Amino acid sequence: MRKIVLFMSVSLDGFIEGPDREIDWHMVDDELHGHFNEQLAAMGAFLNGRVTYELMAGFWPTADADPASTGPMAEFAHIWREKPKFVFSRTLERADWNTTVVRDVIAEDIMALKAERRGGLPEGDLALGGAELAAAFMRQDLIDEYRVYVHPVVIGRGKPLFTASDTRTTLRLAGTRAFGNGVVLLHYRRR
């Protein structure tokens, strides 16, 4: 069965974005971007909330045509365009770029998506992105792995990765990796 894998970058103090939604503090260099490409190319689909999807759709469809894009950026543009995507939104009417709009996080539907092996999705786990969507998945105990990329910056305030919750999930460390730019991957799996 496929796994739901949360991929998120956070500041050292636990924020995914600043108070004005800025992410300019993310320290994504070619080494880290190459790692992201390797990990995400192996996924079967991307699961995003509307805000994350719109951020991605506003840049990645044509990023490989931009002369300012690095090699890893151009590579990811291709990965993002080709990969099936599910955007969870109650307001979005339609979405392009191989994307299906889903209205709600319904545990039975997510379990069916995880079990799907034919007729639609390529092999691979499901990459989850977006703090609000992650919180909805956490409330229903649907996340199998957490891959949190901690950036060596304290931004003081903004949107936290994890909000208050009544859900408790015990995890085990699956691995760590330090990148040359100071970013550290913390990889956890459910017990």
Score class of each variant (00 low, 15 high):
E17S: 15
A136F: 02
I155N: 01
G175C: 03
D109Q: 14
L12P: 01
A41E: 13
R103W: 09
S165K: 02
H151I: 13
D66I: 11
R90I: 01
A57R: 08
G129R: 06
Y149A: 01
H78S: 12
W80H: 11
R168W: 13
L113N: 03
L173E: 08
I155C: 07
R2I: 07
F46H: 07
E132S: 02
R190K: 14
T163F: 15
L186K: 03
R90A: 10
N181G: 10
V184N: 08
H35P: 00
K3F: 02
H35E: 08
A95K: 05
R117H: 10
K159T: 13
G34L: 04
Y53M: 14
S9P: 00
I110K: 07
E108W: 03
W80E: 09
M1G: 06
E38K: 11
H26C: 13
I155M: 13
W80R: 08
K114M: 13
A127C: 11
L92S: 05
A112S: 11
A178N: 04
V102L: 02
L133E: 04
N98Q: 12
V101W: 14
N181A: 07
M8K: 01
N48E: 09
S69R: 06
E31P: 09
D141V: 04
T62M: 13
S11C: 10
A77K: 07
I155V: 15
A112L: 14
M56R: 05
G129H: 07
M111W: 12
I23Y: 03
E75C: 12
M73G: 05
A178V: 09
D20V: 02
G129Y: 01
P61C: 10
F76N: 08
E82V: 08
I79Y: 06
P160G: 04
F59R: 03
D20W: 09
W60V: 08
P122V: 01
L128A: 14
A136Y: 03
A127T: 04
P72R: 00
A127Q: 06
G71E: 15
Q39Y: 00
K85F: 15
T163N: 04
A134V: 06
V183A: 04
D125M: 10
E31Y: 03
N37C: 15
A164L: 08
N98P: 07
A65W: 06
K114A: 11
T62P: 02
V51K: 14
V28L: 15
A174V: 02
V102S: 00
T99C: 12
G120K: 07
E123L: 10
D144P: 14
A112C: 05
G180C: 10
F162C: 00
L173Q: 08
A63P: 05
M1V: 13
G156P: 00
L133M: 12
A57S: 13
V10R: 02
L142M: 09
R191K: 04
A174R: 15
